[in-house]
Amino acid sequence: MKNYFSIRAIVIGCILLMGSTQSCGVKYSLSGGSIPENMNTYTVLFFENISAMVIPTLSQNFTEGLKERIRTQSRLNQVDQDGDGTFEGVITNYAIGSSGVEANTGLAALNRLSITVKVKYTNRKDETGESDYEESFTQFKEFRGDISTNEEQLTRDIILMLTEDIYNRTFNNW
């Protein structure tokens, strides 16, 4: 009987908590994260590649990937400037290295492509500035063989992971 009242109290507490968070002006959805109701637009500025290895298409691909992630996973409308939420930054690292060595030969068994992006996010609708951040995000993929045969797909995969991390940090506060 005691367990019944404990479980009931927890359920009622959760319902009350959910009710109070919905009245805070934040809209929750499974795919859209928690985007404030007063936020309607976003801007993604061009992310310049300032890493030692400059890949000609990386800046454009990353910038477009971030725009697409937000466009497809939120209700926000993209604008070229002065969005309610603004993303800006630079690609600070694009590196290829070995991540594993074969015992017999001493040669690299696995290679790793890593990309780091520094992001500054500003929420113009949050007067407190609590949701603003400046943070670096890094992701990598391991691969076998020559980078030239894998680079395009690896880069695409890493951009997907990075944009997911940025989206989650921004709208799901992860």
Rank of each mutant, 00 (worst) to 15 (best):
F87S: 02
G106S: 04
G89P: 02
L30R: 15
T72M: 07
F87A: 04
G83V: 02
D80W: 10
G83D: 05
D84L: 03
E127Y: 12
Q78A: 11
S131M: 14
N104S: 05
Y94Q: 02
E88Y: 06
Y42D: 00
N104Y: 12
T138A: 14
P36V: 13
R69V: 00
L58A: 02
V54E: 12
L113R: 04
G97C: 08
T128F: 04
Y28M: 15
G89M: 04
N104C: 11
R124N: 15
D84I: 07
D132I: 08
V79N: 01
V26Y: 15
V119E: 00
R124T: 09
D146L: 14
F140C: 06
F46P: 10
F62C: 02
N111Y: 10
S59K: 08
T122K: 12
L45M: 07
G83H: 03
I50L: 14
T57Q: 09
V90N: 12
V101Y: 03
Q73S: 09
V79S: 03
L107I: 08
L45Y: 03
F62E: 01
F140D: 06
N38W: 00
R75S: 07
Y133I: 07
S114I: 05
E130Y: 12
S99T: 08
N104R: 03
Q60F: 14
M39P: 01
L66R: 00
A109I: 00
V90D: 12
R75E: 10
S51A: 07
K27T: 14
Y42K: 00
S31N: 13
E68H: 12
T122P: 02
S74F: 03
K125W: 04
R75F: 07
N40E: 13
N49F: 07
M53R: 11
D132C: 11
Q73R: 08
R69W: 10
F140H: 14
T86N: 01
N93L: 15
G83F: 00
T105L: 00
V79D: 10
E37F: 05
E130M: 13
K125F: 08
